[in-house]
Design a binder for these strands. Structure first.
Length: 307
DNA sequence: TAGCAGGAAAATC
DNA sequence: GATTTTCCTGCT
């Protein structure tokens, strides 16, 4: 079906889709193509007008509004996070960037693959598992693939997953897929819990066994922020660590700050991660996740000081 | 070519 | 609790 959406608050399709929160959108000419909930979406933006074309009537205008969180009052959110020079610059530079409400299972699986990787590589891994294990969808005479169901990945062998170029992540993805297929993860409950409880739930152990192998504090924060409406979640990867140390040094404990500034070993220990992310949530408030996404774009665009 | 970047887990202290 | 090593691939 085809429809248009008139925007009444700030939105940038380009910044939103290009900010590394989603991995299945592709820019071809003036259009963006993506596969969401098994539907192909084709979109372009001209000023405050979004033009959409979709492979299924299920993906209608309210679906698109919900997916791009157009109901959120971005102006108020940005006013609440504009603390400090770096964020003020980032907000002006990437004005209209929004946090997408992704499908929860796809988000979890994608960020399990994201460990020790970079955006182009994550995209390749995700496309590979979609092509091999996802249902085909046709749109405008072209073949696309839905993101695979948990059962499809749970039934695949680790060797088959490895053939998709996942490396050691293959066994993590297999484990996570089985946990989800077996109903051990209640995504709707996650969305209802408060941030702390939801984060703990994603990391929890049952009888000494992790519920979700391959899900640490960073991946858990990505899942909560991008798919569970936890706008205060503040994922910290190496880019965020560097930009916090250089632009918000007071948030970073001295030992960690000098380590990040020295350029060696950018990784954080679990305890350092939890303290820093908590400090950032306190500093930026209930929409800290938006602050994180704007800073992430800024850090990547500038290639932040890597000595 | 070797060396590095990049999260999480497991072993170790 | 903190530190160290391993996992794997792509890029330089």
């Amino acid at each position: 079906m085809e429809f248009t959406i008139g925007l009444s608050s700030p939105f940038s399709l380009e910044y939103t889709l290009g900010s590394g929160q989603v991995f299945r959108w592709e820019n071809r000419g003036e259009w963006w193509y993506g596969v969401v909930s098994g539907c192909v979406l084709k979109m372009k933006q001209e000023g405050d007008l979004l033009t959409c074309s979709t492979s299924s009537d299920a993906a209608d205008s309210s679906f698109v509004r919900r997916y791009f969180a157009l109901d959120e009052d971005l102006q108020s959110i940005l006013a609440s996070i504009m603390k400090g020079k770096a964020l003020t610059q980032a907000v002006h530079r990437f004005y209209g960037l929004r946090l997408i409400r992704q499908e929860r299972w796809e988000c979890l699986a994608s960020f399990v693959l994201a460990t020790n990787s970079n955006i182009p590589r994550i995209r390749r891994m995700v496309e590979a598992i979609c092509a091999r294990f996802g249902s085909p969808v046709e749109f405008e005479g072209r073949a696309y693939s839905a993101f695979p169901k948990p059962e499809a990945l749970a039934e695949a062998t680790v060797a088959e997953l490895r053939e998709c170029g996942l490396g050691y992540r293959a066994s993590y993805l297999s484990h996570v897929s089985q946990s989800v297929r077996d109903g051990k993860v209640d995504f709707s409950e996650l969305a209802l819990l408060d941030y702390e409880a939801a984060h703990a739930t994603l990391l929890k152990e049952l009888f000494g066994e992790k519920l979700l192998l391959g899900v640490g504090p960073k991946v858990a924060d990505c899942v909560l922020l991008f798919s569970c409406d936890k706008n205060e979640a503040f994922p910290i990867d190496v880019w965020m660590g560097r930009i916090l140390a250089s632009s918000y040094p007071r948030l970073v404990e001295p030992r960690l700050r000098s380590r990040l500034a020295s350029g060696k070993k950018a990784g954080l220990t679990k305890a350092e991660y939890l303290r820093l992310s908590s400090a950032a949530r306190k500093h930026f408030g209930s929409y800290a996740g938006y602050a994180q996404q704007y800073l992430f774009m800024k850090a990547r665009s500038e290639g932040v000081s890597r000595p």
